[in-house]
Design a protein around this nucleic acid. Sequence first.
DNA 1: TTTTTATATTGCAATATTACGATATAGATG
DNA 2: CATCTATATCGTAATATTGCAATATAAAAA
Lengths: 110, 110
Amino acid sequence: MGASKTHHFSQHQNTIASLAKALAHPARVAIIDYLLSVDTCICGDIVNELPLAQPTVSQHLRELKTAGIIKGNIEGNAICYCIDENVVAVLQAYFAHIAQLLNHKKTNCC
Amino acid sequence: MGASKTHHFSQHQNTIASLAKALAHPARVAIIDYLLSVDTCICGDIVNELPLAQPTVSQHLRELKTAGIIKGNIEGNAICYCIDENVVAVLQAYFAHIAQLLNHKKTNCC
DNA sequence: TTTTTATATTGCAATATTACGATATAGATG
DNA sequence: CATCTATATCGTAATATTGCAATATAAAAA
């Protein structure tokens, strides 16, 4: 086979996995970095900031948008993409939760 | 083509992408969940906790270990895997940093 | 030592991802 | 309207991931 058995896992597990998957490529992390660095949503020149062809960047943007990490609209012949703060909050809470549990852990054999 | 152009991106971007990739499958998120729930490193029965065959679970464990998210040793015919707290700290810091930048953002068009 | 038990590795089929050339789309500009 | 500019989509090749049966490995138990 080869298809992911996503339906065997909880909704939260699938949510985290889906968000992680969206960030599982350095180009998409670079897109997030760039969106943060310009401190604005209007980012019509993302293509020039990345070492990838325009269709590839467009594809990565779509994956980020499908995962819900960025939200955006088309404005004329430019785009307007921004990071969705709520999704960042979900991920931040997830890792904070893990860190907290690990802090309170008793056993530690490794 | 199809090969990832990882060398075109920064080390930090590749690190984040690599860690995200390790969590980009619900089975691996479920493994993390389980490791946290048992509050111990000794987890010889992970296979029974997942709806996947033993070789598949072993493969997911190896991917988590290769990415550095879990560390572990073999102890007899059992295994001893634990979450690496340092890696969790890296991810927690990353998303906290993003959240902070978004909080201080001036423009907000989306 | 043989068997049992538990995990790792190999090999392979099915599917998904990555990248980009070619082309389509759509608003802005002349 | 024709052209320019910027992004999206299509089609396709190369590569990576996913899952498991079969098999290997290795310590514990009989």
